[in-house]
Every structure is written in structure tokens, then in C-alpha cells.
Amino acid sequence: MRENTESHNSPSREALNSFNTAEVNNFSSNMCKSSIEKLLLSNDNLWRASEIDKIKHNSTGYKNLDNILPNRGWPTRGLIEIVNQYHGVGELQLLIPLMLSVIKQGKWILWVCPPHTVYAPALQQAGIDTNEILIVDKAISCKDALWSIEKALRNKSCGLVLTWQTWLSTKVLRRLQLAAETGGTLGFIFKRRDNKCSPSNIRLRIKNITSSFHDFDEASIALIKAHGGTQAKCISIKLYQHHLQSP
């Protein structure tokens, strides 16, 4: 009789057990989630799309380019790849505003393995102080070049590292990217060929749009991929206006 009464007034033992189990499972899964969350948060090398806004960015100096880049500018640290099949397509003109801002911050620009002699009068014309520039000559092995790039990216006095490489593997790029993150430095790699699995923050391609010979000052830039970017975009910007004036 008592048992019947109990069964009517209170939930059955099975029901109680099943409820408790669900609660415990829920609790343990919450615990597990929070600990995983903590673990993930503690890893600085883990990039999260939600944190894109937290990374400081500098304007590129070109409004059109700012518009297609996430956070409207270059990140202050990380790795950026510029894919250009030929030299002289405006790859350095694109970085003049950035170089000026880096020098203004009192940091150095390191050029690793430039394909030809870096011409100081041109740098001066662009307003870049050559006192703040160091060059690692191209006559070194690829292994030494990568070692130099990594060392420079880890160095806090270097604000910008520019390097010219034909192609780099994903593993190497990832290593360089981590070095740049550690040193708080921005690295630009000028490459001839693209690496689709590259972990770099931004990948750009300077395209040839000079089908006719009337657009000397114009360069077409395509965003291949960017952390936090939505889709590939292409813009054209004017780079060389002062060169059109005859002496």
C-alpha cells in the first residue's frame, strides 16, 4: 500500500535515475567544453576567425586596397605573400606607405635576397630613409636565406621583412608565420608561384592587365585569400603617376 502511495506522489526510481544521469551528462559535457575552451584559449598559436578584429591593422595607403582587405589594412604582424610572375609590376610601390610608417615607428626594414641591387636613390625619392634599411645579399643559399628570414622575423627591432623566393613549402611558410607572430613583425614574401595550402595571413596576386599599353600607372591586385576575408576580390590601383612626367 505504502509502495503504491509512494509511486503516485513521487517520481519513480527509474525516472529519478534517468533524470540524474542526464544532469550529470550535461554537467560533465559542460565541464569538458569549458576545459577544452580553456585549453584552446591558452594556445597563442591558434588563430580564430572571431579574433580578427582584435589584431591591429595599418592602412595600406591605397583606399581601394584597404576596401578588400579584412580590417581595412595590413596586419601589424604575420606573413603576407605577393605573387607576381614578373619583376617590376609594382610590388614595391605597393609597400611604400607601409615602409614609411614602419620607419616612422623607429623600426628597421630588412631585405632578404632582393633579385637585383636595391637602388638607394629610388628609396630616397620615395622618402624612405636608407639608414633604416639592411640588406642580406642574394648570394646565399636558400637554407641560409630562410634562416635569415626567421631570425629577422623574430627580432623586435625589425618592423618589416621583405624577401624574394620562387616557392616555399607549407611547412616553411607556417614556421615563418609563427616567427612573425612571435616577433610581432610583418613579413612580405614575393613569390613567382602560389601555394594553395599556404597558412599566410594574406595572399595577393599582382595581375597583368596591361593588354594595351595605355595603363602604365595602373596595377591590378587580386586578393587570393586572407584570414577573416570573405571571398576573392580584384581591384585596380594607380601606383606610378610621377614616372609619367618627362624629365
Binding site: V118, A120, T130, N131, V136, A139
Partner: peptide
Amino acid sequence: ARLGKDSVLKVRT
């Protein structure tokens, strides 16, 4: 030390 003294350069006009 690693690349040799000739490999580290500065440019001036």
C-alpha cells in the same frame, strides 16, 4: 657570423 661579412649590406647614395 653565419653568412659572412660580405652578405650584410647597407646602401647609400
